[in-house]
Simulated scan of single mutants.
Amino acid sequence: MKSVLAKLATDFLSTIVFLVVYLVTDNVLLATGVAIAGAIAQAIRARVRGEALGFMTWASLALAIVLGGATLLTNDPRFVLAKPAIAHFAIGAIMLKRGWMLRYMPARVTEVIPEYVTLAGYAWALLMFALGAGTIAIASTGDIKLWATYVTVVAAGAKIAAFAIQYVVIRFVITNRLRAAARA
């Protein structure tokens, strides 16, 4: 779990940097410039260390440069605020692949209820699309404090709640299925 969180933090580093610098300085242009520089430095550091850059890192770098550049050129923060939405849409699209979640589940789950895991994978895709749409809606207002609340509290909270619900439901279904099999 720790390595997954570290990977996510790496993939969304420029968004995190933007948010922190903005909250400290209340300056959108400075936060955008620092986020772009941070994304470029992150890619350079990985290349110097000989680390392979994953798709999400390249995508994050490209989005930081393109959307951050548009923000700097137009002085309109809505461009950079849309970046997390694009990531949510991309992740949601990947999650539409049938059975993508099976490899993340314990063997017992994949043996007993693979159809529920597939449904859960589609539910996660739907959640990602909903969060992306919400991010776009909030970003279009240009209210950075509202956006910051949404991406840190609402989006993160929705994912934590979805994970907890998924855990409880899968545990409940497996227990019932195994009890029914034992009785039969």
Rank of each mutant, 00 (worst) to 15 (best):
T15E: 05
A155M: 13
A164L: 14
I86V: 11
G157L: 11
G38Y: 10
W100A: 02
L61F: 02
W58D: 01
V112S: 15
L53N: 02
D11R: 04
T110A: 14
A41L: 08
M101Q: 04
A184L: 10
L5S: 09
A62M: 12
S3E: 05
K7V: 05
A31V: 07
W58N: 06
Q42R: 10
F89P: 00
L119I: 05
I144K: 12
Y122A: 06
W147M: 13
Y167G: 04
D11N: 13
R78D: 02
K2W: 09
A85N: 02
A162D: 02
F163P: 02
L67I: 03
K83Q: 13
R183K: 14
G50C: 09
A133T: 02
A82T: 04
G68F: 00
A164C: 03
A148N: 01
F18K: 01
A90H: 01
R179S: 11
L131D: 03
I86W: 00
Q166G: 10
L72C: 08
I91R: 08
V20F: 10
R103S: 12
A64E: 01
A155R: 12
L8I: 11
T135H: 08
Q166E: 14
R183V: 14
R98F: 06
A90N: 02
A139Y: 02
M101R: 03
T110F: 04
I174Q: 13
I160T: 09
F129Q: 03
I113Q: 07
W147I: 14
L72H: 03
R47W: 09
A158I: 05
P106L: 15
T141G: 15
G50P: 00
A139L: 05
I44K: 07
N176Y: 04
V48M: 10
V20R: 08
L126A: 15
V153M: 13
V169G: 01
W100C: 00
H88R: 14
Y122V: 05
I165G: 13
M56P: 00
I160S: 13
I36P: 00
A52E: 10
F18W: 06
T152V: 14
G33H: 13
A6Q: 05
W58R: 04
A39R: 01
Y116G: 09
W100T: 00
R177V: 10
A164S: 07
A156V: 14
G99S: 10
M95W: 11
T71H: 07
R108D: 13
M95E: 06
L73D: 01
L19G: 11
T10C: 05
G50L: 08
F89G: 08
R103W: 08
V153F: 15
I36K: 02
T25Q: 11
V169W: 06
T25H: 11
A52P: 00
I44V: 15
L23V: 06
A46G: 09
W58I: 08
I165C: 12
A9W: 06
R171K: 15
Y150R: 10
F89D: 05
V34K: 08
R177K: 14
F129G: 04
